[in-house]
Design a protein around this nucleic acid. Structure first.
Ligand code: SF4
Ligand code: SF4
Lengths: 145, 145
DNA sequence: TTTATTAAAGACAAATGACTCTTAAAACGT
DNA sequence: ACGTTTTAAGAGTCATTTGTCTTTAATAAA
């Protein structure tokens, strides 16, 4: 069951890596993140470029350059990030791939799929990078391996 | 959010089409199903071949041939079918793609992803083709469009 | 026995997703 | 100015999924 694309997963992991940093000023090199998270440098670069273009990250070139969160991680909730990376219809899909979900006569699994989507959406709406970054800082969870 | 592959979706829809049939004896042509469900005949054929090999369907060639459910739809629960089509680890994946889910130190979203997976699994375990076929027969839900 | 009908099998092609590489541009230190 | 470090941009490659096509085999009916 793969819910997020590899690109989204790696983008999210990088954002969490940044949110978990102790120090807030300065930039974190993409090379360092790629090594630490075990992602290809070039692949991660491409993913982060898009996040920079979308205003979630700011970047800086040259020595000691890298990327940094462009906004307070307390205001960055998973929902916004996932919609940004996966598309705005992320929470509006049919389990059986039928078009017009929710509006028209439902598919046979509508009843519980609707619940599942709603629960997931709510969680994404109420979970911020700040919150998850904190959990990483105290060492309760992992981002790699 | 695409949880099931196209192949699984179309396989499931075909199984539901069969489970919704009034008459239980005889075979249903793949051509008919492909037309009705708006799936390419050849693509559907390939999908159903695998379901036949796995013992969920039986098939018959020649005039008035086709496929039919090989088992009582009351004993066919979604979980078994999905595991069959998507692989046995379907309900054991990490939202962030980390290996060793559940056993090792969790990822930051473990807490609610675990719940989501469990809820989904339970629904799949308790929903049979018979039950969904009935809903289709009474016209409450749709399989195509 | 011949012909029509249907699924089985497998080769093949197209589309998508997942990366990789090369070159350029920006910033810095000397 | 020059060389080094680092991201930006985009072309290019590889793998997987999705979808198509052709040929064969089984069955029935004429
Ligand atoms: S389950 Fe119902 S609402 Fe959900 S996608 Fe399928 S049709 Fe749409
Ligand atoms: S959330 Fe926790 S348990 Fe679920 S997959 Fe990620 S690591 Fe494994």
């Amino acid at each position: 069951m793969q819910v997020l694309s590899k690109a989204s997963i790696n983008g999210l992991r990088a954002l969490l890596y940044l949110a978990a940093q102790e120090r807030r000023e300065g930039y974190t090199g993409i090379r360092e993140m790629a090594d630490e998270l075990d992602i290809s440098f070039h692949f991660l670069t491409k993913i982060l470029q898009e996040l920079t273009q979308k205003g979630v990250l700011r970047s800086y070139r040259g020595p000691n350059g890298g990327v940094a969160l462009a906004r307070d991680p307390g205001t960055l909730y998973l929902e916004e990030l996932v919609l940004m990376m996966e598309g705005d219809d992320f929470f509006d899909t049919c389990l059986l791939g039928l078009p017009g979900c929710g509006e028209r006569k439902p598919c046979p699994v509508h009843a519980f799929w609707k619940e599942t989507k709603a629960a997931l959406k709510k969680e994404f709406q109420t979970t911020s990078l700040e919150e998850l970054g904190q959990q990483i800082r105290v060492g309760k969870v992992r981002l790699a391996d």
